[in-house]
Amino acid sequence: MDCRTCIELLNDYLDGELDGTRFAEVEHHVDRCPECKAELDRLVKMRDLMAELKTVEVPEGEREAFIDALRARLETEGIPDFSKHKDLRPALVFAIAAVLILIAVVAYGRRPQPPPFIDPAVGLTPIENAMVDRVIAGSLDDHVLATNMEFMSDPGLTSGQALAVWKVIKETHSDLFEPYEPDE
């Protein structure tokens, strides 16, 4: 151990905060190094001087007199009504959790729902592709066509959202769609 490390560890040594190995290393070094020994002696002297301050006598009767004065001050300044300050943290946590859950539920409900059996990443099924072709070709109702083209060309919609709208339209106006048999 070098002197710098030893000096850095002297207070921990005096505090009893060193493990056995480090403790022994410091002792070993200090036994052989006059400079570090002198530094240790200064630290011990400093602590001895500090110890002179440790005893602070409390005059007899002072504590009870203080409590009387404190009680009077509390009565003068108004004792806080702790019933208003009861631990509200559990209720607050519950309320915040409830609001977050409500927000999540509302957001989830308002979110355009992807069709349950079509993965948007995959795209339309062959049947739906054919239906889109027929709408575009004008072989389906104008209303469906207009609605259909409008939503399909909306740049604000993701493919999943467009698909979801399409599904709603298809289900709502199922009577407008002719049965379709895909080509083999």
Partner: peptide
């Protein structure tokens, strides 16, 4: 007041 009694000396 009991709490004050317990810790008065140390805080003082």
């Amino acid at each position: 007041e009991d709490l004050v009694r317990l810790y008065y000396d140390r805080i003082r």
